[in-house]
Nucleic acid binder design. Sequence first.
DNA 1: TTGAAAGCGATACCAC
DNA 2: GTGGTATCGCTTTCAA
Lengths: 337, 337
Amino acid sequence: MTIKDITIKDVAKQAGVSVSTVSRVVNGLDRVSDATRKRVHKVIQELNFVPNTMAASIVRKKTNMISVVVPEIQNPFYTAVIEGTEEIAKREGFFTLVISTNGEESEEEAFLESFLGKNVDGIILIGSHRDAAFYKEIRKPTILVDRYINDSGHDGVMIDNYRGAYEATKHFMAYGHERIAIIDGTHDFNDGKDRFWGYKQAMLEGGLTPELRYHKQGSWTESDGYRYTMELMNASQPPTAIFAVNNLICKGAIKAIRDLNLTLGEDISLIGFDENELAQFVQPQVTVVRRPTREMGVQAAEMLIQKIREEQKEVSNPKKVILDVELLKRGSVKKLK
Amino acid sequence: MTIKDITIKDVAKQAGVSVSTVSRVVNGLDRVSDATRKRVHKVIQELNFVPNTMAASIVRKKTNMISVVVPEIQNPFYTAVIEGTEEIAKREGFFTLVISTNGEESEEEAFLESFLGKNVDGIILIGSHRDAAFYKEIRKPTILVDRYINDSGHDGVMIDNYRGAYEATKHFMAYGHERIAIIDGTHDFNDGKDRFWGYKQAMLEGGLTPELRYHKQGSWTESDGYRYTMELMNASQPPTAIFAVNNLICKGAIKAIRDLNLTLGEDISLIGFDENELAQFVQPQVTVVRRPTREMGVQAAEMLIQKIREEQKEVSNPKKVILDVELLKRGSVKKLK
DNA sequence: TTGAAAGCGATACCAC
DNA sequence: GTGGTATCGCTTTCAA
């Protein structure tokens, strides 16, 4: 059992043919006689030869690898998207590399600029939030998922954040709610802005005025969800409904409601954005705006691979695909008469 | 903005130096005059040159990449381990590629044998469960995490499954429980066997006889956890305590207990193996055997990188590191008088 | 059908 | 300090 990797040359010598021939049978090309093909295969078996794909890639200028770059690998949203991309990639003969940047922009850059980034055929960036100039530097088929930056020059797959928030708010209103609070995240990017905008529009259209005291804005974290729910409910005139703009905030809200000894769907109504485990566990279950996570990955991978095949490295006309969301009505919204 | 990747040659020509020199400055080697270094750097900037690391790897026979292969990327246990490995890898200058096999053994093989597997410096296999012969084929520094196969020839990082189960069972007994049930998974591998064994030993040592009616064995799934909890509690003489051997089973048990309208820690005591979100949410919180997930990743990465550096490709004496577990006592175990 | 040889992009040894 | 060149493992014309 020798350590040295055996190469195409070893196979050639052992089989008594040229490396060209070995290369041909390895790649399943025609014009090789059955006899030699068989012989070569046998030697490959015996020697346990595995071609060095890097060497191949450098001449082919194709790696058959795509990479998916995510901010954090612990978040179920990202892994769900990844599963979608992997499914398609695999079907289409691509290998998926997952890179987690741990939320550090420098990591993203390190990957894209100086390392493996150069050695994949295409890139899917999920939840990335650099500026347009940054993305323009990427001279490779690239798809932006979840967050889209205009003028980035790349295609994108997103969801209709506006509509999700709009529908949620409308649902509250349809059930007779008027004091509808929103626990909001920062508005650094479109997703945050759009969700707030959807809420606001729905309110205005229904003749309600969004009140400042019902608008809590902090980070997109569970602890803020908890804290603001406490604040809202301890105020003199608490809201009858709370819209939690992401899954973490929603979890925090659920915990706060429990700790306040309030009955969900009775003392307070709640809608979350994005599915989460607690929302499904508590009773009544929490109504949420569901986004098609896996489908986002599928779409992104399909678009990317098509791009790779067409070698449209330069995007003339970036395409944005907006996937629809769905309001999963469960029991956490009380019908006021 | 041209598409063609620019190479070291382009830089050399533009800077009026040889490729050797460019290579030197790119790699930060000494023996380059400040003047030329500066000039070359300038050209690199202008041309936006990014070295092709694959080409470099093929001559260096080093990629500075390690891969982590997991069965499924959606499972928080795996992602926690991954975070640990990434931390170390990054610190040591390695890039981490995450590969999800989606539970398909063929995928694992595809990766290891014919693809990128060849192009990383080392491999961490988490939760893999092939036979020894399979692992022996891997001629690369490799660490097995969580599941260990004897005679595989590789190092491993595991936890003390036996002790975890033993402590949990002892805890029940210390609190006066005698009818202690176990909802068990399959015994295909050591982890499953050891957990059951720990339970059994603790019982026997305490003078209790593990009864067949209190031993439910199925798959490691939430649905089985749910189903068996139902069965146990609906039987004529239900147990007073249940040991759920993994996080999914534990979640199922929690849901069943809720649906049976039983009070946790009062009508029924419960201990889970491995932390999980529901265990922390319900009140009282569920006592669990905590395993040091992140630390497992850290250990594995450290061992792997050391091995890579020592070029111990052939392991003479595989090393097994067993990390300890901890019983997190929370409120789900009732003190019987 | 097969082989020889040039080349992919970079490194590293050896001269100068 | 700097450059020339063999080399890494493989693919791909071009001839034979």
